[in-house]
Amino acid sequence: MTKTVVITGANKSIGFETARQLSQLGHRVWLGARDPKRGEAAAQALREEGHDVRYLDIDVVDDDRVRVAAERVMAEDGKLDVLINNAGIPGTYDGPLDEGVDNVRKVYDTNVFGTLRVSYAFIPLLKAAEQGVIVNVSTGLASFGWLTDPESRYFGTNLLGYNSSKAAVNGLTVSLAKALEPYGIKVNSADPGWTKTDFTGHTGNHGPEDAAKIIVRLATIDKDGPTMGFFNEAGSLPW
């Protein structure tokens, strides 16, 4: 079944590759980006590959642009099957004692409140679908189980704003999953893994092509698929 998909922050890296893989499966993708020039160029690149991809102007920290984006999808498609909250920023790489409230607030405004703002705007469209799905792109750095385990590779990566903001995103996943269960809408968090992107200075274990796989898997679950979970390619993760 062809699904209608919205992906935020999708003009490059993991978001762009997620758009590519979902469109390769035959789904209609709204490629969301805050920069119209870059967003339209990314959408055009996928259209040239033969895919049904449209640029969607959206900035997750801007109430008006989020509202207008949801109105456009409603006007053109009447529903939304899948929302992928991918847009995010890393913040500074200062230590926790030096990052400062203003920097952390900026990270939260995009990663946490942006995710919630977009979810609120598109939930009516998800309710109009036969079975809606939300995928919140998180990180292994949001796992308290891993961050507190000295044997974990994540133990030493102590980014106060980024780590805690993505842990808050996981909290949104749990809360929204409970609230939306009566409507048949499933909500999960995805950890793409340590990926070679601008975020990581292009270091990592794999590229966006592999990172997108778990997002695509969660985006395409059926009515028997999981909800209120946190997953990477290997399976469930500790919260």
Rank of each mutant, 00 (worst) to 15 (best):
V73N: 01
K79F: 13
T115V: 09
G161L: 07
A10M: 11
N205Q: 13
G225T: 07
T148R: 14
D149F: 13
L46I: 05
G88H: 02
A45V: 04
G32E: 00
V174N: 08
H206I: 07
S175K: 08
K223N: 12
E48R: 15
T197S: 10
N85H: 11
L180F: 05
V107H: 04
D102C: 00
H202L: 11
V112D: 10
G100T: 08
K213L: 13
P208I: 04
K196V: 10
G32P: 03
V53P: 05
S164T: 15
G171H: 03
A87V: 13
Y154K: 07
I58L: 15
T110I: 10
V118H: 00
D98F: 06
Q131R: 11
A41H: 06
N85W: 13
M1I: 14
K196E: 14
R65F: 02
D62I: 06
Q44M: 07
T227L: 09
A211I: 09
G15E: 01
V68C: 01
A219N: 04
L97H: 10
A168H: 08
S152H: 12
G26T: 12
D77E: 15
R20I: 09
G204N: 03
G50I: 07
R20T: 08
V82P: 04
V6Y: 07
K223D: 13
Y183R: 11
P208W: 07
P238Y: 09
K213N: 00
N111W: 01
K196L: 12
P96W: 04
K166P: 13
E17K: 08
G161N: 07
K106M: 13
N103W: 05
R65M: 05
V187C: 12
G193N: 03
G204F: 03
S164C: 06
L126H: 07
R28T: 15
V112Q: 02
N111R: 00
L80C: 11
T148W: 13
A179Y: 11
D198L: 12
S138A: 12
V6R: 00
S236E: 15
G225F: 04
T227G: 11
D198Y: 11
L83K: 04
F231H: 08
G140T: 06
